[in-house]
């Protein structure tokens, strides 16, 4: 196996354009290698590439690791970061890797959907920004061209004041999500609900959002209807980790609980 360590982004992009496999924290790629699913011959190692490890309120470099996001990221993304693997994994894994792999269960992805983040893709001929719903196109499928690298996550400069994340897994830590969810809410009631592990890509529960955004102090019945709408909108499957029925149920429960947390913080 040939491994190169580019000194700057230009060298990395040239290597990618040359067909080399990008390796960031290795927490996805190395698992596939260990299980014999992939046998990359030529690898470009991005770990020491400072060019893509910048961090600001509106821009998170693709090379930023979960450990840093857990401490410094926006609230719901930090909560999500805390659920990524173990401390060792969080010290290695990057948000760019999560976005590039685009697993339906990616812990960081519902946040991107909830705040309408954009993905910055860069190639030798320049950069382009794709909104999350243009970028994620299917199970582990994205709009990234093979000569491009994910270089940053771009966020709006007015993220919602209230944002909450939660994830259901069968174990108390170090677990692939069965369902994960982010709910955000603004002063004016505008609410977003994003979910993971319940569709081929991260998704928004638009009907539930629309219904609840106009409710300033939702009643018990409204909250129940909100949960029902979320359960209805998700499109989960049954696999070895859970069932469609449970995922629908848990999606509604999580969304409602997170909304309630937002409302409590609103009241406080």
């Amino acid at each position: 196996m040939e491994v190169i360590h580019p000194r700057n982004l230009e060298e990395a992009l040239a290597a990618v354009a040359d067909g080399m496999t990008p390796l960031a924290g290795g927490t996805d790629l190395m698992v596939e290698v260990n299980y014999g699913q992939k046998r990359p011959e030529r690898v470009v190692a991005l770990r020491r590439l400072a060019d893509i490890a910048d961090f600001s309120p509106t821009r998170i470099g693709a090379g930023v690791r979960w450990r840093r996001i857990e401490k410094e990221g926006p609230r719901a993304l930090a909560q999500a970061a805390r659920t990524v693997g173990s401390p060792q994994i969080r010290n290695a894994g990057t948000i760019g890797g999560n976005v590039a792999t685009a697993s339906p269960a990616g812990d960081g992805l519902p946040f991107l959907a909830a705040v309408d983040a954009s993905i910055e893709l860069t190639s030798g001929s320049g950069s382009r920004l794709l909104r999350w719903d243009e970028y994620f196109v299917g199970v582990k499928q994205t709009a990234r061209r093979s000569d491009e690298l994910v270089t940053a996550i771009v966020l709006a400069d007015d993220l919602p004041e209230r944002q909450e994340f939660a994830k259901v897994g069968v174990r108390n830590a170090m677990v692939i999500s069965t369902v994960c969810c982010v709910v955000t809410r603004r002063e004016d009631g505008a609410t977003t609900v994003a979910l993971g592990s319940v569709a081929p890509t991260p998704m928004r529960a638009r009907r539930a959002e629309e219904m609840i955004s106009s409710e300033r102090s939702p009643s018990e019945a409204t909250l129940a209807e909100f949960a029902r709408l979320v359960s209805e909108e998700v499109a989960p499957i049954t696999d070895h980790r859970s069932t469609e029925e449970y995922r629908r149920h848990a999606a509604g429960v999580l969304a409602r609980r997170l909304l309630e947390r937002c409302l409590r913080r609103e009241a406080a």
């Binding site: 909560q79 805390r82 659920t83 909450e164 994340f165 939660a166 994830k167 259901v168 897994g169 174990r171 108390n172 830590a173 677990v175 999500s177 994960c180 999580l254 609980r257």
Partner: peptide, 12 residues
């Protein structure tokens, strides 16, 4: 219950 996933509050 739910651990680091923050699913659950004492009232649940």
């Amino acid at each position: 219950p739910g651990g680091s996933g923050l699913t659950t509050e004492p009232r649940h």
